[in-house]
């Protein structure tokens, strides 16, 4: 069949190069072809100068607005000076209602179909050995939560100080920002999924197909390194809601938690909530023996 395109990676690159030559010659503007061509020649996020960054953001805004039919804002806010973000989660208060999971999906434009959740709520039986995260029940169903005799541990990206996922990336598409957030440049990611294999917390997720997000449910306030709509074939994960927290707001999961179990703050500020709970409460981190130094602190406040 001639009208269907047979796309292989090599063929695509050949075509793109040929297309680049012809487009440069005719100097035509607009259309999806030019957008994807610009994307192809786009630099790494950290190597972009101001001008190119602005051009890229404008292009992405245009692309998303066309695709979803509403005005998108793609920002690239820089880290606030003197911040190192930390997260606290009170497992004695968490009731396992999964409201954080769905608030995260809505805020961060996660794929609904096929389903991707950045937060996984694990259920453990009280009084039993529970540190085997892989054996925990994350598909629990209950009429009402909390169920008697169980406790819940929501797990998402732990934003490690010594993150194993950034070390294994062959193209440096993922790295730690100065405020401690591990981010991904979705335009630079090649989809090799080494980082998913390296992450001990199962926090990274892969877009096997085009993410299915209904246009009316998209969140148009986005960040380049955070919740902008992702293409197929890239890895994504929690970024502490980079688009919110770099403007001073709490992450979406912390704002929605009905039990108030989620705490967020600046680890470098001695008067912050996160420092108070680390100093005053019993705190632990997941898989501390791996020396990944997560900035996600679980605590018990009873």
């Amino acid at each position: 069949m001639d009208d269907k395109e047979d796309i292989t990676r090599r063929g695509f690159i050949k075509g793109a190069v040929a297309g680049a030559a012809s487009l440069a010659a005719t100097n035509c503007s607009g259309g999806g072809g030019l957008g994807s061509l610009e994307a192809f020649f786009q630099s790494h996020f950290k190597e972009m100068d101001k001008e190119e960054l602005q051009r890229t953001l404008k292009r992405l805004e245009r692309e998303y607005s066309e695709k979803y039919g509403k005005d998108f804002v793609v920002k690239a806010d820089k880290p606030i000076e003197g911040t190192l973000f930390g997260y606290g989660l009170d497992i004695s208060r968490c009731i396992g209602c999964r409201r954080c999971v769905y608030a995260c999906v809505e805020e961060n434009n996660q794929s609904r179909d096929p389903q991707i959740h950045w937060i996984t709520v694990l259920r453990f039986k009280k009084g039993e050995k529970w540190l085997e995260l892989e054996e925990a029940d994350k598909y629990y169903e209950a009429e009402k939560v909390p169920e008697d005799g169980y406790f819940y541990v929501p797990v998402s990206c732990q934003q490690c100080e010594k993150a194993p996922c950034t070390k294994v990336c062959p193209v440096q598409a993922t790295w730690k920002e100065p405020d401690g957030i591990i981010v991904i440049d979705y335009n630079w990611c090649i989809g090799c999924r080494y980082c998913m294999a390296a992450c001990p917390y199962g926090a990274r997720h892969f877009n096997l197909t085009d993410p299915g997000v209904p246009a009316e449910e998209t969140n148009p306030n986005t960040h380049y390194l955070g919740n902008r709509p992702r293409p197929r074939g890239v890895v994504e994960k929690c970024t502490f809601c980079i688009q919110r927290t770099r403007n001073g707001r709490y992450p979406a999961c912390a704002e929605v938690c009905p039990a108030g179990a989620r705490k967020f703050g600046n680890l470098l500020d001695p008067n912050s909530e996160i420092r108070y709970l680390i100093e005053k409460k019993r705190v632990f981190r997941l898989k501390e023996d791996l020396n990944t130094l997560p900035k996600f602190f679980y605590f018990i406040s009873l």
Binding site: V101, P114, Y139, Y140, E143, K144
Partner: peptide, 19 residues
Amino acid sequence: KRVPKPRPLKPDEIVFKKP
């Protein structure tokens, strides 16, 4: 007590559509 939101899909329940 509250009604929890639906559980995540198990791997074999997720349908990947072909592009």
